[in-house]
């Protein structure tokens, strides 16, 4: 059975602060989703609602048609992997794996041990004696080996060095390919995950800014470079994310679906056309007045 997550007009208020306001979306199918947002945008708050750590102030969350909050059936199928404080965790790596095995019906012990080897985790060491990067790797091992229908990685890579992160992405794709399930990656390392995710949600200041397939979002970005006057003339009226000028050459980033023929017009004007990466799109889409300088 494929997973379906539905958020319907979800708001979350903490004290006087509106952390999330009126968020609605539907995640249909076992895909890898990316949840992007700037610091404080509400990513972790939203994910903690999906993981039933909290209840929304208004609106509803449904996972496979059930409310997740304090619902056992949903909760043991949702795994929320996040960087927690483990400075007092005196359990060993092995003990943590055994604990996970007890609570996760789809746990695969053989796979967990294979991952432990790949991340070079010492089975008998206590968790609080591990480096931050190794602690994160252990969380990732548990997250993957649990094979829950919904697996959420919220900045799970914290402290992991580049080679360890590379192992993480490789194992994630490999295991997802063999055992498709709903995975949500929340991250600031956008360029590292851009090729892994199929759909992206961007939240900004507690609101859902967009939810698109990565292909669609990318097809809406186009960078155009050419002689300044001509670029101004041919791009006027379009939604420009950023403009830069160097001498007489101007470069603009256009966002939105272009009318047919527009691209050919740019090409025949001799402009240099190029794509805009997911990370850059994210930066300029979530830029607010006063951010610059």
């Amino acid at each position: 059975m494929t997973t379906e997550i539905k958020a319907d007009h979800v708001s979350l208020r903490l004290g006087n602060h509106n952390v999330l306001s009126d968020i609605s979306f539907q995640l249909k199918g076992d895909k890898i989703y990316g949840l992007l947002g700037r610091n404080g945008a509400g990513k972790t708050s939203l994910l903690s609602l999906l993981a039933s750590f909290r209840e929304p102030t208004e609106g509803t969350i449904r996972i496979n048609d059930e409310m997740p909050f304090e619902n056992d059936r949903v909760m043991n199928q949702v795994n929320f992997v996040y960087a927690k404080d483990q400075s007092n965790e005196t359990e060993t790596v092995k003990g943590m794996l055994e604990f996970a095995e007890r609570y996760r019906p789809n746990w695969n012990a053989e796979y967990a041990l294979k991952l432990v080897k790949r991340f070079k985790l010492p089975l008998d060491q206590k968790v609080d004696a591990l480096s931050k990067g190794k602690q994160s790797a252990l969380d990732v091992v548990i997250g993957l080996a649990s094979r829950t229908s919904v697996t959420i990685f919220d900045e799970a890579y914290l402290g992991m060095d580049a080679p360890a992160r590379s192992v993480f992405y490789e194992e994630l794709i490999k295991d997802y390919a063999e055992h498709p399930r709903c995975m949500i990656l929340s991250t600031h390392l956008i360029s590292e995950v851009a090729s892994l995710i199929e759909e992206v949600m961007i939240i900004d200041c507690g609101k859902l800014l967009l939810h698109e397939s990565v292909d669609t979002l990318m097809s809406h970005g186009l960078s155009v470079t050419g002689p300044a006057e001509k670029v101004d003339q041919l791009t006027s009226g379009l939604h420009l994310l950023k403009q830069q000028q160097l001498g007489r050459t101007k470069s603009v980033m256009i966002y939105g679906q272009l009318e047919s023929g527009r691209r050919a017009e740019f090409e025949s004007a001799g402009f240099e056309l190029g794509p805009i990466g997911l990370q850059e799109l994210f930066i300029y889409l979530t830029e607010h007045e006063g951010d610059e300088e």
Binding site: I173, Y176, A177, S195, L196
Partner: peptide, 11 residues
């Protein structure tokens, strides 16, 4: 292909 290039299988 997905595993080799670390890309989404749908892609």
């Amino acid at each position: 292909f997905a595993t080799f290039y670390k890309i989404n299988p749908a892609t």
